[in-house]
Design a protein around this nucleic acid. Structure first.
Lengths: 199, 199
DNA sequence: TGATTTTTGTACCAACTCGCAAACAATCCT
DNA sequence: AGGATTGTTTGCGAGTTGGTACAAAAATCA
């Protein structure tokens, strides 16, 4: 063990002056706010602090960077769902925790409530771009499947149908958040959904 | 009655070579497909057959034209809801007719299923533009209110909550259509919602 | 030390963006 | 007929777009 641990392979040239994860997070936030077509490279340079050539070398062109932010979003959502399923809370409380987290996230944003990047920006580009459409489809399937898995584990006999409806409410929460709905309005809708499934 | 009927006020100069309603419809379709930022003036010239200065004289700049397409969409949706309410069908059938019409519309599009222009494109621009956000908020409120009005008229004691959930399903149908969902999948979700409200 | 490798900063380019000016065309009014 | 009014066509120009060439900087390797 005289060598440095191989978790840092000590690459050869000049080391990077940035953390790829943080940069991806900053890019995600800009894309979530303004959408794909509405975000320029100057915007991304401004948001990430990196110059164009650094962005290009690390992630590829604008579209590849956008696709990377979508992948990141899908992975993080999947982990959040798995954590909720593993928490083993009772049905009603599981749904309340889920909607609370969703609403908290949707109400954040650089300039105001920005909702969900998949629902509000990737859906816009999905018609023109098959790869973006595939990411959006994978995300929606993830929502449907993970919520169904949660409901099955809590003994809901109508898990599949209820999961689709809960996913639909999540989509609408994103739309409503961007439309300027208040937290109370979003929570009322979530509460309606919880009552319908668990009430 | 020697004069022409005043329904055609006989304006003074050269008459227009286009129908404003048709042009607005063509612009709506382009905006619905590619979003606001993703639609260029060249696209609009191509879609409408009008040259730039004619578009400008008739509707103003690109943003004003987009806002006009949103207004048109809101008005048409309002009329469709009123017609459904006036049709006086029983509860379950009213909902089925509504979802059928929604799904039919969402599955159309220039290059593929394009969903709802409000949910899939105005939501994207709503964060940056207060007027677009106001139109989106008005549209969502229209959906909630008109569906509640329909449910109240059919004797649903949970009309308000059920209306919000039905609106949410409509929003999700738009997202799912753009994600590439099949008609069967969309109809299954709509059926879940009808069962939940009327079943 | 000096050669090599990788990242970073500056500057740039061709293409596209929106919007408009100016001339031309078609109709109405007198 | 001839002026006034409105709509259409052509073409342009200032600014922005996404993407890249090139050299300087910062590290490792020999």
């Amino acid at each position: 063990m005289v060598q440095k641990s191989d978790e840092t392979p000590r690459r050869r040239g000049r080391p990077r002056g940035f953390d790829a994860g943080e940069v991806l997070g900053a890019a995600t936030e800009r894309f979530r706010t303004h959408g794909y077509a509405g975000t320029s490279l100057d915007d991304l340079v401004d948001a990430t602090g990196l110059q164009r050539p650094s962005l290009y070398a690390a992630f590829g062109d604008k579209r590849a960077l956008y696709l990377a932010t979508l992948e990141r979003t899908i992975e993080r959502a999947g982990r959040a769902f798995d954590q909720l399923i593993g928490a083993d809370l009772p049905l009603e409380q599981s749904l309340k925790v889920m909607f609370r987290a969703v609403i908290d996230g949707f109400l954040t944003g650089e300039t105001g409530p920005s909702g969900c990047i998949m629902v509000s920006t990737s859906a816009t580009s999905a018609v023109d771009d098959a790869e973006i459409r595939a990411r959006l489809a994978a995300f929606v399937r993830l929502e449907d499947d993970k919520i169904e898995q949660l409901l099955v584990a809590r003994g809901d006999p109508l898990a599949a149908a209820h999961a689709r409806l809960a996913t639909s409410v999540i989509h609408s929460l994103s739309v409503r958040a961007r439309a300027g709905a208040t937290r109370d309005e979003l929570e009322a809708l979530a509460s309606d959904c919880v009552t319908m499934i668990a009430g």
